[in-house]
Computed example of a mutant assay.
Amino acid sequence: MDPLALAGAFATIVGLLSNFKAERSGSDLSDFMQWLHEQHQEHIAQAISQNKALSTELSTLLATKHDELVTKITAINDQISCVAMQIDGFSGLAKILRPSPALSNQAKSILRQIVESGAKFVMEHKLGTGNPAEFIFIDGATGKVQYDEPQFINEDFETLVAMGLLRLELASKGSRRFIPSRAGAEYVKAKNNG
């Protein structure tokens, strides 16, 4: 399959999956296939039914909790936008469709701490005590991210991910893992030198 067709097929399936989950609470492949037929997407439904590996992967995604799936789809969209912003001809479109939010002082501090720590990533640790979550340096550093506006901590991490300054991975139990990106390291270096 040529690169344009491959990219189009992936984008189409992810887009349709996103629309399905926005409209319905169905969590299995048969619900999705029925919805595809209702949306006059018979060619996509046929392609899915003819490809066992694709059917299996979609079944797994559809079984994911709604909030977790939305987080994953948002992360895909953010990553595509960040990549597109680096490519001539697509950067303007990506900036219009997904403008970069401004970084708060706390977000800048979080990014600086993570990059300068030398840790490979930061792991979110939710406390059952009612206290705000801790973000612990893992592999290469010890300690935790210091912050003083707990009500905005999630927004700040989401903004750093949306801007491509951190990467987000979900751990097996739903905790988030934030990984510094090259763009994030360059941002911190530029701010330190500026």
Results as ranks from 00 to 15, higher is better:
82 C>M: 06
93 L>E: 12
169 E>C: 05
177 R>D: 08
123 M>E: 11
183 A>M: 03
21 K>Y: 05
167 R>H: 13
192 N>G: 00
178 F>Q: 04
43 H>I: 05
121 F>D: 03
128 G>W: 03
43 H>F: 08
108 K>P: 07
61 L>A: 12
110 I>D: 09
192 N>C: 01
88 D>W: 05
84 A>Q: 09
89 G>F: 06
17 L>W: 08
191 K>W: 01
147 Y>W: 06
175 S>N: 15
124 E>V: 03
168 L>N: 11
41 Q>D: 02
173 K>H: 13
188 V>Q: 00
194 G>T: 07
163 M>N: 14
17 L>R: 06
127 L>K: 14
4 L>Q: 06
60 T>Y: 13
169 E>Q: 15
163 M>Q: 13
1 M>C: 02
48 I>K: 02
52 K>Q: 08
126 K>F: 03
102 A>T: 14
69 L>T: 11
103 L>R: 10
104 S>C: 14
76 I>F: 13
126 K>R: 12
27 S>L: 07
157 F>A: 00
76 I>N: 06
99 P>S: 11
46 Q>M: 04
120 K>N: 06
190 A>C: 00
89 G>T: 05
79 Q>Y: 08
53 A>R: 10
161 V>T: 09
96 I>T: 15
185 A>M: 05
56 T>R: 12
10 F>V: 10
47 A>P: 07
92 G>I: 10
119 A>W: 06
66 H>C: 01
106 Q>F: 10
104 S>E: 12
40 H>T: 07
11 A>M: 06
44 I>W: 01
71 T>W: 00
44 I>D: 00
